[in-house]
């Protein structure tokens, strides 16, 4: 996990734009980050800031407008169809809505075996054994669950099935997009624990996308904060939450509610809502809501730079450590 080793997943200057009539929505506006083997990188930010688009562009469900994605040094962008499909087995995505991402007309066994059947990597007993192993790994009883249909399962159990399906090809990287956001706290905790266990067991590398800051902190080694298509701050979780340097990270954290009456009611510095990505503010995209904004912020785009070891900030006037 040290910065010396090569990253397993590397995103370089990724841009994703959508055409909306004659206007262009820059959902992701040039972001770069690395994820090292065995690491979990959290990606947080308000809804609409481009988290899902980033995840989808990494697995190329969404075609990046420009930029590169490398897995173990191999470029994913620009691959042909066949190669891309093969490369995709090493990188899988899990979505928010567990129920609608499963085919309601197929049995759990077949849903989990779907990638195997596509790639024809295994057949017969071997295929069945792999499916059993995966179901057991995600905490479902293969004898009970295997022959049932998704509608017979609760949201949390459906999410377990999606995880089993994502892991069946033994991917190296897993992109989790709001995978626990639709679940109750109790079930959320079960799934988060499961993710931690599976990560250790299969040596997974994770990009964990969520809007819930507490959830992201819990699972991540490092966290990247995103605002209006750009990265604001990237740092090891505990550092980021203890000593946020970017005004946006500070504002986000001040808004978090904690189940603790002793914690003073937040003094939210952040007012209003993010501006539209169709016509983002010049310079620093956060400047329209930033309490520390100055003239320079309007003219010059702040680039991500290191202010402490492994702690990067994109701000002209970050809060530096005491």
């Amino acid at each position: 996990m040290s910065a010396e080793t090569a990253p397993l997943l590397s995103v370089k200057d990724l841009t994703v734009s959508f055409k909306k009539g004659r206007q262009v929505v820059q959902a992701v506006a040039g972001i770069s980050f690395d994820v090292y083997e065995g690491e979990t990188l959290g990606l947080v930010g308000e809804s609409g800031c481009g988290k899902s688009t980033t995840g989808r562009a990494i697995v190329r469900i969404e075609e990046p407008t420009s930029g590169e994605v490398l897995v173990a040094g191999k470029r994913l962008t620009g691959l042909g169809r066949g190669e891309l499909r093969r490369a995709r087995t090493s990188i899988q995505m899990i979505f928010q809505d567990p129920v609608s991402s499963l085919n309601p007309r197929r049995r759990v066994n077949d849903i989990v075996a779907e990638p195997i059947d596509i790639w024809k990597t295994e057949t017969g007993d071997q295929r069945a054994a792999t499916v059993r192993e995966m179901l057991e790994a995600v905490g479902l009883d293969p004898d009970v669950a295997g022959d049932r249909y998704p509608r017979e399962f609760s949201g949390g159990q459906c999410q377990r099935i999606s995880i089993a399906r994502a892991l069946v090809m033994k991917p190296k990287v897993l992109i989790c997009d709001e995978m626990v956001s639709a679940l109750d706290v109790s079930v959320q905790a079960q799934i988060l624990n499961l993710v931690e266990d599976l990560k250790a067991k299969y040596g997974l590398t994770l990009v964990f996308i969520a809007h819930d800051l507490a959830v992201v902190k819990n699972v991540s080694d490092r966290v990247a904060v995103m605002y209006l298509g750009r990265l604001c701050e990237v740092a090891p979780s505990d550092d980021l939450y203890a000593l946020p340097a970017h005004p946006y990270t500070q504002a986000l954290l001040s808004a978090v509610v904690e189940p603790d009456p002793e914690k003073a009611t937040s003094h939210v510095t952040l007012t209003g809502e993010p501006p539209s990505p169709i016509n983002p503010p010049s310079g620093c995209r956060f400047r329209t809501r930033c309490p520390s904004a100055q003239e320079r912020c309007a003219s010059e785009v702040p680039e991500l730079r290191e202010i402490a070891p492994r702690h990067q900030v994109a701000c002209h006037f970050p809060t530096l450590r005491p």
Binding site: V185, S186, V187, Q188, A189, Q190, L192, N193, E196, D212, L213, A214, V215, K217, N218, V219, S220, D221, S237, D238, Y241, L253, V256, E258, P259, D260, K263
Partner: peptide
């Protein structure tokens, strides 16, 4: 319930 006051990777009691 996960919290930001807990260190990262705190095992939740589900």
């Amino acid at each position: 319930t996960p919290r930001i006051s807990q260190p990262s990777h705190t095992r939740l009691i589900a």
